[in-house]
Design a protein around this nucleic acid. Structure first.
Lengths: 216, 216
DNA sequence: CCGCTCAGAGATGTCGACAATCGGCAGATG
DNA sequence: CATCTGCCGATTGTCGACATCTCTGAGCGG
C-alpha cells in the first residue's frame, strides 16, 4: 500500500476543492487567509502555501496586496480554457494513438456505452465519473509528460469550476454519439481526424457551458 | 508611467533568474531557503513565496520535506517541453493568422533578415533578442489568453534553462531559412501548414538542444 | 451637490522562532 | 563482511506577531 503524506497545505487544498464543488464558494468571492486559518484551526502559513498551488492551477485569482478570489470567468475565457484543453488533449491522443492495445480500444467503446446508459438512467454522477475514466484512458498512452502536466492542470481547473454543468450539457444520445466519434477516430488511428474531433468536442462543450453559465 | 511595485518575492524571483542565466546555479543543485534568505538579507517567507512561483513555471523542482532543486531535464524531457511549446504556439498562430496586418507581415520578414544578419555578424545576443521579438509578434495576435499563458510559461522556462544553447543551435543561413519558413506559412495564411511548420521547428530545436546538453 | 482628503479597519506581506521530517552515518548484530 | 537500527545534523513545515498596503467612507471645501 502506498502511504500518502498529508501536510496541512494539502489538506487546505482539498478543503477548498470541497468548498468549490459544494458551491459554498462562489465566483468572485474572496478567500481570506485569516478566516480559512481560523476555520481549519491552523495558522496562515499553510493556507498561503495552498493558495499558491491553487493559483498555479487557475482555481484562484491572485491580486497582489489585495487578496485571493474565486475567478469569475467570462464566456470567452470559458471557451478559451476548453479550447486549450482540446488542443492539448488532441495532441496527446494524436501523438500516442499507436500505443493503444486492442483491449484498450474495447474499453474505450465500452466506457462510451456505459456513459450513454448512465445518462439514460439519469445517473449524472456516474456519467461524469465514467467520462473521467474515458478521458484518462485517452491520454494515458501519451508519454510527453509536459503535455500531460498541462492537460491535467486544465482538466482539474475545469472539473472543479464547472462540474455542476456537466450533467446537463448533452442528452444521453448526444453523449454517446460524441464519445463514439472520438473513440472511432482513435481506433482508426487517423492523427488529423483525432485532433480535429477532440478539439471540436471541447470547443463545443466550452461554448455550451458558457451559455449555461450565462443563463444562470 | 506605469508604477511597478516590487515586493520582496518578485525580487527573489528576478534574483534566481539571474543566478540561473549566469550559470551560478547548475541543474541538480539545491536552492536552500535559509541560504538565499541570508544572502538577500530577508526572511524565509518571501523566499518560499518566490519558490512557489518558480515551481509553477517549471524552473524549480520541489520535493516535499526535502527541498527545492534546479531541475535536471533528461533529453526526452527537453524534447517534450519544446514539442509542447510547438503545439501551443502552433495553435496560437494558426488560430490568429488572419489577424495580422500588412505591416506586421513585413515586420516578420524584416525580423527574419535581422536575425540572419546578426548571426552572420556572430552577435549571438542580438540573435536571441530578435528571435524573441519574432516569436512575441507571432503570438501577439492570439486572443486565447489561456493558450498565451501556457505558452509564455513554457517559453520562460525554456529561455531560462537553455538560453546558453540557443546561440550555437543553427548557423546563420539555417536560422534565416527556418524563420522564413514560418513567416511564409503565416503570410500564406494556411492553418495546417502553420501548425505543422511551427511544431516541426520546436521539435527539431528541442532535439538539438538535448544533444548539445548531452555532449556537454 | 460633487469631488477631494485622510483616517480607520481589515486584508496581505514579512519576520524570527520552534516543530516535524528527511538523509546519511556510526555502531551493533548476524 | 553485509545488513539493519538508532541517532544527528540540516532543511523544510508551521506558528503567532508585527509591518505595510488597500479599500472604504466620513468629513470638508468648492
Amino acid at each position: 500500500m502506498a502511504i500518502i503524506k498529508k501536510t496541512y497545505k494539502d489538506q487546505v487544498i482539498d478543503h477548498v476543492y470541497e468548498l468549490l464543488l459544494t458551491g459554498e464558494l462562489s465566483p468572485g468571492q474572496q478567500l481570506k487567509e485569516s478566516l480559512l486559518a481560523a476555520q481549519m484551526g491552523i495558522s496562515r502559513a499553510p493556507i498561503r502555501e495552498a493558495m499558491k498551488e491553487l493559483i498555479m492551477n487557475g482555481l484562484v485569482d491572485y491580486r497582489p496586496q489585495v487578496g485571493n478570489f474565486i475567478p469569475v470567468l467570462s464566456p470567452k475565457e470559458i471557451i478559451d480554457s476548453y479550447t486549450t484543453r482540446g488542443v492539448l488533449e488532441g495532441y496527446a491522443v494524436m501523438e500516442s494513438c499507436g500505443n493503444f492495445s486492442a483491449a484498450e480500444f474495447d474499453t474505450l467503446f465500452r466506457l462510451t456505452e456505459e456513459m450513454e446508459n448512465h445518462a439514460l438512467a439519469l445517473n449524472q454522477k456516474l456519467v461524469v465519473e465514467v467520462g473521467g475514466q474515458f478521458h484518462d484512458l485517452l491520454i494515458s498512452r501519451c508519454n510527453n509528460l509536459q503535455v500531460i502536466e498541462y492537460t491535467n492542470r486544465l482538466s482539474l481547473k475545469l472539473h472543479i469550476l464547472f462540474y455542476k454543468y456537466w450533467a446537463t450539457l448533452y442528452d444521453a444520445r448526444e453523449i454517446g454519439r460524441r464519445h463514439r466519434l472520438i473513440a472511432e477516430a482513435v481506433y482508426a488511428q487517423e492523427p488529423l481526424r483525432i485532433e480535429q474531433v477532440i478539439r471540436e468536442h471541447y470547443r463545443q462543450s466550452g461554448s455550451l457551458i458558457a451559455e449555461l453559465r450565462q443563463g444562470a
